[in-house]
Computed example of a mutant assay.
Amino acid sequence: MHLVFVTSLVPDGTLTTGYEIANAAIIDGLRRAGVKVSVVGFTWPGKQPIDPDNTVLLGSVDVQTHTASAKQRLLWLGRAIVEGHTFSSVKLRKAGEARVRQALQKLEPFDGYVLNGVTLAGAYPELFRNKPSIFVAHNVEHQSATENAAAARSLVERLLYTREARLLKQLEAKLCGQADFVFTLAEDDRAPLGIADDRLSATLPLTTRKTAPAPLPSRQPTYDLALIGTWTWQPNRIGLDWFLQRVVPHLPDDMTVKIAGHAPPGLRSDHPGVQFVGRVKDATDFVRGAKVIPLISQAGSGVQLKTIETFELGMPAVATRSSLRGIADVPENCTVADDPAAFALALTHATRLRLPEGDGRGFHAAQMTAMDRQILRGLAALSFALRRQAA
C-alpha cells in the first residue's frame, strides 16, 4: 500500500515541537506496518526534508504567529476573513491549488491519504476527496480554540479565537465525516469529534523516539525541577501561567526551577529559585538534570508528548490529570494532583525524598506495541475502502 502523508510541516530531523515528534512517530509506525509513505507539505525556512526521496515540497513557511510582523499577521487575518478559512490554514494557502495538485500527481500511483491534522487539509479541503483517507486528529482543535478564547488577554484576541473555534468545529466535522478511519491521540478526544464508534476511530499511542533510552544509574541532578516547552503556544502558556501563578507561590524559597524554551514577553516569577534559561542544547540532558519533572497541562486536547518523554526516561514526575491524556499506564513514580497547593506539596515531597527513577524501556515498548496494533486497524479500514472503490 502506498499512502501520501499530507502535513503542514514535513519531517526535517529536528524534533523541536510535539507536533514534529508525533509526525515522525506516525510515519515510522506506518512504515513498520509495511506501508510505502510519501510526504507532501512545507518546510521551515532554511530546512530540508530528512527523507527527500519520498518528499514533495510545496515551499517553505514559518507558521509561527508570534515571530511574524504585524503587517504579515494583518495580511493573514484579512485573507482568512475574505476567504472563510481558519487563521492557521490560510498561512498555507500561499502554495495555491495548482501547485498542490502537481505535487500529488508526481506521487502517483498511490492508494490513499493520511491527512495529518486540520491545517493543510483545511487549506485545500476539496483536493483530498478523490481517494480513501485516514485523518489524524492531533487535538480537538475547536475545543482548544474555545479554551484559548476564554484565556485571551484582549477583546480582539478573544473574538479571533472564537471565530477560529467556530470554523474549526465545522472543518473537523467535515474531515472526520469524509475519512475512512480517524486516529486521535487521546481517548477523550473521540467523543467530542463525534467518532466514538470503534468502527470509525481508534486512539493512537505514541513514542518520542525509535528506541527507548537506557536508564542512568549514576545520574546526579543539579536542580530540583525542570520544565521545557513551546510557551508561545497558547495551551502550553495556559499551563505555565497556572504553574507560575498558583503553584510556585506554595514552593519553598530554596527550590530551584529551570524553565527552558522560548518565553514570550512579560513572563516572570518573583520566586527566587525560578530561572528562565531559553533554548537548551540537548532537551534530554536538560530534563535529566532535574530531580522531578512537573507536568502542568491545564488546557488543550490530544496527548502531551512531554509526558510520554518523561515516562520514557523513567523520570519522577508530578502531573495534572490533563497531562495524562492518552496515557493508559501511569508509572509508579508519577504523582497525580490537580489542586495547586497539593501539586506544590507533591513536588516538595518528591524532591526531598528523591523518588526512585524507573526504567522507561517497558513503557516505551508497551506504547510502541499498542501503536502498531492500532495502525493495523486503520489500515484494515483503508483496505476495505479500496476494495469497495474497486468493486
Rank of each mutant, 00 (worst) to 15 (best):
70 A>W: 06
163 R>Q: 01
216 L>M: 12
346 A>I: 13
368 M>V: 12
362 G>F: 04
295 L>F: 02
357 E>R: 15
177 G>S: 13
289 G>L: 01
168 L>W: 03
312 E>T: 07
75 L>I: 13
51 D>M: 10
40 V>Q: 02
391 A>W: 08
140 V>P: 05
106 K>P: 09
33 A>K: 10
328 A>Y: 03
206 L>C: 00
252 P>T: 07
171 L>S: 03
252 P>S: 06
181 F>Q: 11
368 M>T: 11
45 P>C: 09
19 Y>H: 06
56 V>W: 04
246 R>L: 04
239 G>I: 05
28 D>W: 01
161 Y>Q: 12
127 L>C: 13
230 T>Y: 00
278 G>W: 09
102 Q>A: 15
22 A>N: 00
270 D>G: 12
162 T>P: 05
1 M>N: 04
329 D>M: 03
96 G>Y: 03
149 A>Y: 05
18 G>Q: 09
41 G>F: 02
273 G>Y: 11
377 R>Y: 12
277 V>H: 07
246 R>M: 01
228 I>T: 12
201 S>Y: 00
278 G>I: 14
316 P>I: 14
68 A>I: 01
119 T>V: 15
310 T>L: 12
301 S>R: 05
3 L>V: 10
266 G>D: 10
115 L>V: 11
170 Q>S: 15
36 K>E: 08
239 G>N: 00
147 E>K: 07
304 Q>E: 14
15 L>P: 05
122 G>S: 14
214 A>Y: 06
69 S>T: 13
96 G>C: 02
99 R>K: 13
252 P>V: 11
166 R>K: 13
254 D>Y: 01
193 L>N: 00
97 E>S: 10
276 F>R: 13
103 A>V: 10
54 N>L: 14
343 F>H: 09
165 A>S: 11
343 F>Q: 11
54 N>W: 06
